[in-house]
Nucleic acid binder design. Sequence first.
DNA 1: TACTATTGTCACATATATATTACTTTTATA
DNA 2: TATAAAAGTAATATATATGTGACAATAGTA
Lengths: 89, 89
Amino acid sequence: MVEITEVFKMHERGAFLLKDVQVKNCVKLIRIEQGNMTQGELAKMIGVTRQTMNLIEAQKYNPTIKVCLLIAAALHTSIDKLFWMEDEE
Amino acid sequence: MVEITEVFKMHERGAFLLKDVQVKNCVKLIRIEQGNMTQGELAKMIGVTRQTMNLIEAQKYNPTIKVCLLIAAALHTSIDKLFWMEDEE
DNA sequence: TACTATTGTCACATATATATTACTTTTATA
DNA sequence: TATAAAAGTAATATATATGTGACAATAGTA
């Protein structure tokens, strides 16, 4: 896992971070911990489909900040604890 | 401004939050405070266009978590400090 | 005032987040 | 084991985030 300060140094070297960085999340872990709700329940709470929630948990989507804020609220946590950046590969 | 706990109570009442909630941010304020860089400079650092950064600061876009994480890193802060939810209207 | 940098904005094109429907695979539980 | 619930996934459609190019409006500065 790359620290934010480390990622910041990357672009100081001139890299275009948007393409070099990959977003990870622990939504599934926290969903199970927090009340053990299902993907479908969480999805319904925030107003997206179960399939969308599935893809977000599988880290195949780059969700919008709106959806992320709603997930964080539903799981009683913060975005900073749910999503972070890693190096590509 | 609506507290996260308050927003959470909304969906406990059965609301579909995705359509009822609106995302606000203070990117422009923090960009000026943090080294007084321009929209164009910030955009280049994270690899989006100046126009995209302009629309994000004007709160006309619902940016992806990836872009938000990069903005937070570039501005030496966290997503939780840059983005929050408010009631529609 | 004049000149320049910065910001705002528009029209159009493209990529992708999300929805919908349906099906298979896995997990839990009787 | 058998059955159902949950999760994974695929195809297709739609909405929208983002890119590109251009130009107007604003702010800063000589």
